[in-house]
Design a protein around this nucleic acid. Structure first.
Length: 504
RNA sequence: GGGCCUCUAGCUCAAUCGGCAGAGCAGCGGACUUUUAAUCCGCGGGUUCGGGGUUCGAUCCCCCGGGGGCCCA
């Protein structure tokens, strides 16, 4: 709760804007007439969708004899003298017309309908399924009652909702915009698909700590909180990786977690401070195996949303994510972009010259590997539109990845880039506890020097690894990013209630 | 963190050069028994994001602060 004006009751209804005051008066009038504006139970017999399905194509001016009681939110009203029309809508967006005639409901009930029902109200209509003379499938009311009075008016239905209202008042966005409702369903379909597909491959879903004594598994700035009972600071996890690896050590050979991680960093159209992450680990697998898994998970997610690997973006464009995806090494991709030879043998000095000619700013402390990664991020990443696995990163930028079997300066790691953004990553995991200790020690030195993103030395994680971790492939993928890839929308459209600043 | 744009009625937006703050939808009153964003007649509705300044006079110009968007870091 905050103390914003939303939570502060006005001193009297007189202070309210006219339309809110009038609706409150209508609520009071219902109560005065002994009619509950918010009844506890609603004797619905049929959904609007059910009625539409049962009577798909009636002739105009048909009486079915079918008596129903339906509920819905009033989206449009067309009140005439003795015959009123209203468009009712239920949760999935299905609409059905209600008709109220003087002859059927009587003068008093019709007058109350006109006086007390506003756009946005939920109403119950008891009547017969008919079609109007114009052929509109309708319920011709014998009676009606209020189901839930809306005391705040809905936005105009025929204008775009402002960006701010869409995000701050998602409930309004969901009422007004089918695309907002579609996203909720698309996200659910993707989450269900990921779980089903992993389950079908004998992966076990686990839940590991979100509150952690040490943060690790990624390079990112964490949120800090405090546990009173332990009188100690805790971190909200930036990744589940180190606990999932402990799980693999324990013999759970195929394991995944699909839940929220938290990073105390920038907020923009591609970054949210809390986001949903999938991580999966498979013993006796490599980063090549994880590439196949990742591609299949994404392609199945596309099928779950679109019925096909062809995804449709909000701008109307279509993109086929089907088939095999191309791979390129990090150094090849940079060499191609800068039109010069760039290999693991290229020295830092040479790379600095290349960076200068392409106006890429570098830090003095960076190694050759770090410079190549910067060149990739600045010059290449946004150009990779079709799904591309970018492979074999410098070992110093992947502290949890094993050295490449063919070149110890490289790590067996790939990033998956789609539409110019990183969608997922995978490693052949580092499982040598001695090597892992030395890598984390280097990270902890960086942390001691003040790098807030460096990893901490997690002795318990190293102890687990000392018991022997099998060779393992691991992958991670941002679920919000996956939804963005599938829909072409920004991250705040994929998250139902994204973080927003407190209202002023 | 920096730059640019923006904030006006319930909602979406206007307002000329600094001169009585308007429209559509929504609302209220009236007419209308087949409407589809119903239509027709009439009427209300404003802390112009907040604070300060300049001015006879500020939605408009200046300063500080807040919210939102876009671009950059």
């Amino acid at each position: 709760m905050n103390d914003g004006p939303v939570n502060t009751p006005p001193s009297s209804d007189d202070d309210l804007p006219e339309q809110l005051r009038i609706r409150r008066e209508k609520r009071a009038e219902l109560l005065a007439k002994g009619k509950d504006p918010y009844p506890v139970e609603v004797p619905r017999t049929d959904t609007l969708a059910g009625i539409r399905a049962a009577f798909p194509d009636l002739e105009p001016d048909t009486q079915t004899g079918r008596r129903v009681r339906v509920v819905g939110r009033v989206m449009f009203v067309r009140n005439t003298g003795k015959l009123c029309f209203a468009t009712l809508r239920e949760g999935d967006g299905t609409e059905l017309q209600a008709m109220l005639s003087l002859a059927n409901v009587g003068a008093e009930s019709l007058a109350e309908w006109k006086a007390l029902v506003d756009l946005g109200d939920h109403v119950l209509v008891d009547g017969e399924v008919i079609t109007s003379r114009r052929g509109e499938l309708s319920v011709m009311a014998d009676s009606w009652s209020m189901v839930a009075k809306a005391v705040r008016p809905l936005p105009v239905a025929h204008r775009e909702l402002s960006e701010e209202t869409r995000v701050r008042q998602r409930y309004v966005d969901l009422i007004m915009r089918p695309e907002a409702r579609d996203m909720v369903r698309a996200r659910s379909a993707v989450l269900r698909t990921l779980r089903e597909q992993l389950g079908a491959r004998d992966y076990i879903e686990v839940e590991t700590p979100m509150l952690q004594l040490l943060h690790g598994g990624a390079t990112a700035r964490p949120f800090v909180t405090h546990a009173n009972a332990l009188d100690t600071d805790l971190y909200l996890r930036i990744a589940p990786e180190l606990f999932l690896k402990r799980t693999v050590v324990g013999g759970i050979e195929r394991v995944f977690e699909l839940n929220r991680v938290f990073r105390n960093e920038g907020i923009d159209s591609t970054h949210s401070p809390e986001f949903a992450m999938l991580e999966a680990y498979q013993a006796y697998a490599t980063y090549d195996d994880m590439a196949v898994l990742t591609r299949e998970l994404i392609q199945e997610s596309a099928r779950a949303v679109f019925g096909s690997t062809v995804v449709r973006h909000a701008d109307g464009s279509e993109h086929d994510l089907g088939g095999e995806w191309r791979s390129v090494t990090l150094h090849e991709s940079v060499a191609n972009a800068v039109q010069a030879e760039v290999t693991p043998d290229t020295g830092a000095e040479e790379l600095r010259k290349i960076a200068a000619t392409h106006e890429v700013a570098l830090k003095d402390s960076w190694t050759a590997g770090e410079i190549v990664l910067e060149l990739f991020e600045k010059l290449v990443e946004h150009t990779l539109i079709e799904p591309t696995f970018v492979r074999d990163y410098p070992v110093e930028v992947r502290p949890l990845t094993r050295q490449h079997r063919d070149d110890p300066r490289l790590a067996e790691a790939w990033d998956l880039i789609v539409f110019g953004h990183e969608l997922g990553t995978a490693y052949s995991e580092l499982v040598d506890p001695v090597e892992q200790r030395s890598r984390l020690h280097a990270q902890s030195v960086l942390a001691a020097k003040g790098d807030p993103e460096a990893m901490q030395l997690d002795e318990d994680f190293l102890r687990a690894m000392e018991y022997g971790m099998p060779p393992t492939g691991g992958m991670g993928m941002g679920v919000d990013r996956l939804l963005m890839t599938l829909t072409g929308l920004g991250i705040r459209d994929t998250i139902l209630f994204p973080l927003v600043r407190a209202e002023g």
